[in-house]
């Protein structure tokens, strides 16, 4: 699909009145009702899906829209997790505030990563971000006085307004943040920034000719994307309540990229579907040795060959036909 068509689509992407809002309403209602239906295990898996969906939403803005590959999102995720945990646990900052501060802090880190990204493209950028991810992970590991290094950081349940968040409370918090995240990504993708990013992906020269400062928009895309990953990290830290530097390895960055690609590059629904696939399918396949990796790998291949728009693209095609 050409850039022009993409941009045109971006402008009039509002769902046709009718099935769209109804479907969305059903999804939201189901998500709200989940804690009453599921046991703690199911709720945990769903909560984890929400956390990864948030990362995928941010990464999709960067990779799906702007076409910039990042292999350091696990590190952004980790910096967010550690920043939120340390601010809350050690400095005594209220949890919601430290989520926000952790996110902003990591957005700055993301902007710094974007500096080499202004000069590098495709594979070269991937390698540069890979290096950056390794460095960030190493810093978390070595800064023992702050992060407790390889000993990991154990966290007590977060408190909001005197109310201790347990599984259900945390789930609703994640749901609220994901909703905000979808709304934010929706706005960014349809606004000036989203359109600028789409042109940059297609051709930086063309973007320049149109007077779009590619460098500035790339920095913005990296910063927003890092912000999403970091807030997700802050939620993750308190979901598992034990974080360890090795959680945030390159393997997780690749998993994030896979979620975005499997779900559908450049789509919001795809980010959520991709995250759900990544978390829920291995849970359903428990008991079959190595099956999660095998199915995941095979599906990546199938998606790449047969579904250039990912699972979400397929769902939309079926939806349109019905």
């Amino acid at each position: 699909m050409s850039a022009a068509a993409d941009i045109e689509r971006a402008q009039r992407q509002a769902l046709p009145f009718g099935t769209g809002p109804i479907l969305l309403g059903v999804c939201v209602a189901a998500a709200c009702a989940a804690p009453f239906v599921l046991n703690g295990y199911g709720l945990y898996v769903l909560n984890l899906t929400g956390v990864f969906a948030l990362v995928a939403l941010g990464l999709n803005l960067l990779t799906g829209y702007a076409g910039q590959i990042s292999l350091c999102h696990a590190a952004f995720f980790g910096v967010g997790a550690y920043a939120t945990a340390i601010l809350t646990q050690t400095a005594g900052v209220p949890y919601l505030l430290s989520l926000l501060v952790g996110g902003l802090l990591t957005a700055c880190v993301g902007a710094v990563v974007a500096v080499p990204a202004m000069r590098l493209k495709s594979l070269y950028l991937a390698i540069a971000t890979l290096g950056f991810g390794v460095v960030l992970q190493k810093i978390i590991f070595e800064w023992r006085s702050l992060t407790n290094g390889g000993g990991g950081l154990a966290l007590s349940p977060p408190v909001i307004g005197g109310y201790e968040l347990r599984a259900t409370g945390l789930y609703y918090l994640t749901l609220a943040v994901v909703t905000l995240g979808v709304w934010g990504a929706w706005n960014v993708s349809r606004g000036r920034t989203g359109r600028a990013l789409l042109i940059i992906k297609e051709s930086e020269i063309a973007a320049g000719a149109l007077g779009i400062p590619a460098a500035r928009y790339k920095v913005i895309a990296f910063a927003i994307s890092a912000f999403y990953a970091a807030v997700a990290g802050g939620l993750f830290a308190y979901l598992v309540r034990y974080i360890h530097p090795e959680n945030f390895s390159v393997g997780l960055s690749i998993a994030f990229l896979s979620m975005v690609v499997i779900g559908g590059l450049g789509t919001i629904g795809g980010s959520i579907v991709g995250a759900a696939f990544y978390v829920i399918v291995p849970e359903l396949l428990r008991g079959i040795k190595d099956a999660p990796g095998l199915v995941f790998g095979l599906l990546l291949v199938i998606v790449m060959v047969l579904m250039p728009k990912g699972l979400w693209g397929l769902a939309r095609r079926i939806g349109r036909r019905a």
Binding site: G40, Y41, E283
Partner: peptide
């Protein structure tokens, strides 16, 4: 016995499944 691939977040999922389900 449940697989967690040595990933702590999946260990928690395993343990919750074992205990709650």
């Amino acid at each position: 016995a449940e697989d967690d691939g040595y990933e702590p977040m999946r260990t928690i999922a395993s343990a919750r499944k074992l205990v709650e389900q």
